[in-house]
Simulated assay, not measured.
Amino acid sequence: MFAILKKELWSYFGNWSAWVIMAAFSLIVTLFLFFFDNDSNIFEIGMASLQSYFVLVPWLLMFIIPALSMKTFAEEQQTGTLNWLFSQPLKVSDLVFGKFLSVWIVG
């Protein structure tokens, strides 16, 4: 499981995908909390509270985490290593948990 976790984290941070995802997440949260005219705007609320942030973040992560998870298995399928992974003396739960943990760390 830790080997899969390390491989997946290296595949995210070794290229631009994780950096783009984190930048997009930060940009979207910043726009909603400070610039867009909505109920989550901190300036319109009139007090410094993280309640708006914690209301907004689960909605964003609801789209980001499944997209990242699908990407991990799609890349394995595309390169042809998914069948090889399933044939290794490795539990499927370890494979899925290692990939999920890497997506959770990035997300």
Rank of each mutant, 00 (worst) to 15 (best):
I21G: 04
F36T: 13
D37E: 15
M22I: 11
F36M: 15
Y12S: 00
P89C: 02
V29D: 05
S102K: 01
G14S: 06
F25M: 09
I105Y: 10
K91I: 07
L82Q: 01
G14D: 01
N83Y: 03
G80T: 02
A67M: 12
P58N: 11
L50Q: 14
Y53D: 11
L31K: 11
N83E: 08
V20A: 12
G107Y: 08
S26N: 15
F43S: 12
T30E: 11
D39M: 15
E8A: 02
G107M: 14
D39Q: 15
I65V: 09
L85R: 02
L95D: 04
L5I: 03
D37W: 13
I21A: 10
W104S: 12
G107T: 11
F35R: 15
F73K: 03
L90R: 03
W10T: 02
L85M: 07
P66H: 11
I28A: 07
D39W: 15
V96I: 13
N83M: 08
M47D: 15
Q77C: 04
D39P: 13
G107N: 14
W19I: 09
M70R: 05
W104K: 10
L31D: 14
Y12E: 00
M22C: 12
S93A: 13
F35E: 11
N38K: 13
M62P: 01
A24I: 12
S69E: 03
A74G: 01
Q78L: 04
F86M: 06
F97I: 09
L60K: 04
A3V: 03
P58Q: 08
W59Y: 13
S11G: 05
K6Q: 00
A74I: 08
G46Y: 12
Q78M: 05
L31A: 14
Q88N: 09
K71R: 08
G46A: 12
Y12M: 01
L82R: 03
V106K: 05
V92L: 08
P66V: 11
L95F: 07
L9I: 03
K7A: 06
S11M: 03
W84I: 06
F43V: 14
L33A: 04
L101C: 14
E8G: 01
L56C: 09
Q88H: 07
K6I: 00
K99E: 08
S102Q: 04
I4D: 00
G80L: 06
G98R: 01
K71W: 06
L82M: 06
G107C: 13
F97Q: 07
M70D: 04
W104C: 15
W10C: 06
A3C: 04
F63M: 07
K7D: 03
L56K: 06
A67E: 08
G80D: 02
M70C: 05
V29Q: 06
T79F: 06
W59S: 08
T81D: 06
Y53V: 11
L90Q: 04
V55Q: 13
S87Y: 09
T81V: 07
F63P: 04
Y12R: 00
F100V: 10
G14W: 01
L90T: 05
T79E: 04
L5R: 00
M1I: 06
S17Y: 07
L50G: 13
S11R: 00
S17Q: 08
Q78F: 04
F43I: 15
A74T: 07
G107H: 09
S93W: 11
